[in-house]
Simulated assay, not measured.
Amino acid sequence: MTVLILLTQIALPLTLLAWLGLWPAGSFIGLLLQAAGTGAFLFALARVAQWAVPVWWLPRVYGALWLVLAVAACWRQEISGLPWLPDAVGGWGAIALSVLLLGLGGWTGARAMLGQRPPPVEVVDIANPFGPGRYLVGHGGSDPLVNGHMRTLDANVERFRPWRGQSFAVDFFGLGPWGLRASGWRPADPAAYAIFGAELRAPCAGTVVAVENDQPDFEVPEQDTVNRLGNHVILRCGEAEIVLAHMRQGSISLVPGGRVVVGDRLGEVGNSGASTEPHLHIHAQRPASEGAPPISGEPLGLRIDGRFLVRGDRLPGALN
C-alpha cells in the first residue's frame, strides 16, 4: 500500500509536472493537448485518490504547479509562433500520450464528479456526529470510484450480502496539525492518529438498538475480519437505522433500549473490528430482517449537516 501511494500520489504527479515543465511540446496542438492531458489527469487523481496519506492539500499544490508550468510553457515556447502540428515522430508520440491522459483523466474525473450526486435511494438527514476536531472523508459518494463500500451492492457476491446495508457508508479520518491524519506515515499505535479518541455524539433522536463495547482496539494494520463492526452503536431513528462502527473499547455507556437525543454522547472513535487504521464508519439502512445479520438491511443514503459527503470533503466537528 505504501509503495502504491508513493507511486500514484507523489511520483506520478511529479513526473507529469516535470514533463510539462521541462519538455513542453514544440507544436501548438501538441502543447495544448499536453497541458490539457496533464491537467485532466491530475484533476481526476485529486478526486479519486484518498489523500489522507500523505496530506489532503497536496492535490491543490499540484494544481497550482500545473497552472504555473502551463503558462510558463506557453510563454517560453512563444505559442503564437509555433507550428500547428509536430514535424517529428517524437512530437506525435507526445500527442498520443497527451490524448491518452486526457481521455483517462476526463472519464475518471467525470465519474468522480457524478459521484457527488446522492444515490437513487432514500436519503436520511442527520446531524454532525462529531465533537470538536476536523475530519476528512476517506470513502463517500455514489460511485465505486470514490466509495469502496458500494461493492457490497453486488447481490451476486454471497459474502457481501451480510454487509449490504453499508453500501453508501461514509468513512472519516481525523486531521491534526498541518492537515496530517497521524504523527508519522503509518504508525502502529492507534493513539498516534488524530481521530483516535474523538468524541462521538448522537446524530439523531431515537432508540438504541444494539451496542458492542468490549472489542479490542488493534495496532495498525491488524484488524478483526470476523467481528467487522468492532465496538459499535446502532440507533433507530424513525424508520432508519444509523450505524456507527470501529469505536473505542470501553468508551460507550449506552444500553440497548435506551433513548438518545441529538448531541448526546455516544462514545469515542477507536480502531476495533475490520479497521485497518482508526476511523469512523457511519451508514444508514433499513432495519435488517429478523434473524439476519445486523447490517444486512436495505442501504440508504446519508446527508450530514445538509451535505452529501464524498471522498476528499472535510467536515468540521462541533465547537464545544
Rank of each mutant, 00 (worst) to 15 (best):
304 I>S: 01
288 A>S: 15
284 A>H: 04
296 S>D: 08
245 A>D: 07
207 T>M: 13
265 R>C: 06
279 H>N: 02
238 G>N: 13
256 P>I: 13
235 L>A: 09
271 N>L: 07
220 V>F: 02
235 L>R: 02
298 E>I: 03
215 Q>M: 13
280 L>E: 00
307 R>A: 13
193 Y>S: 04
292 A>P: 05
248 R>Y: 02
298 E>K: 10
235 L>K: 05
278 P>Q: 09
302 L>W: 01
220 V>M: 04
235 L>T: 06
309 L>Q: 03
224 D>C: 06
208 V>C: 07
275 S>E: 05
235 L>E: 05
273 G>H: 03
284 A>G: 12
263 G>Q: 12
286 R>G: 06
235 L>V: 13
243 V>P: 00
245 A>L: 12
291 G>K: 06
301 G>Q: 01
305 D>V: 07
200 L>T: 01
210 A>T: 12
201 R>F: 11
262 V>N: 05
282 I>T: 06
203 P>R: 04
309 L>A: 02
282 I>L: 11
229 L>S: 07
236 R>A: 15
309 L>M: 11
278 P>E: 11
229 L>D: 02
207 T>C: 03
254 L>P: 08
265 R>G: 08
267 G>D: 03
248 R>S: 06
237 C>W: 04
226 V>M: 09
203 P>G: 11
209 V>A: 09
251 S>Q: 10
212 E>Y: 02
210 A>M: 10
275 S>I: 09
264 D>P: 06
249 Q>C: 13
294 P>R: 15
278 P>Y: 04
246 H>F: 04
276 T>C: 03
278 P>W: 03
226 V>T: 15
226 V>K: 13
290 E>P: 00
275 S>N: 06
262 V>Y: 06
202 A>L: 06
222 E>M: 12
259 R>V: 13
199 E>L: 12
260 V>Y: 00
201 R>H: 12
204 C>W: 04
243 V>K: 06
256 P>H: 13
293 P>A: 14
266 L>H: 02
241 E>F: 05
281 H>Q: 08
286 R>Q: 15
263 G>H: 11
236 R>P: 10
310 V>R: 07
192 A>L: 08
250 G>D: 05
198 A>N: 03
216 P>S: 10
253 S>N: 14
219 E>D: 15
197 G>S: 01
255 V>P: 00
238 G>W: 15
239 E>Q: 15
253 S>F: 14
249 Q>A: 13
209 V>G: 05
241 E>N: 10
250 G>R: 03
271 N>H: 12
234 I>P: 01
241 E>D: 14
216 P>V: 11
247 M>E: 01
205 A>Y: 13
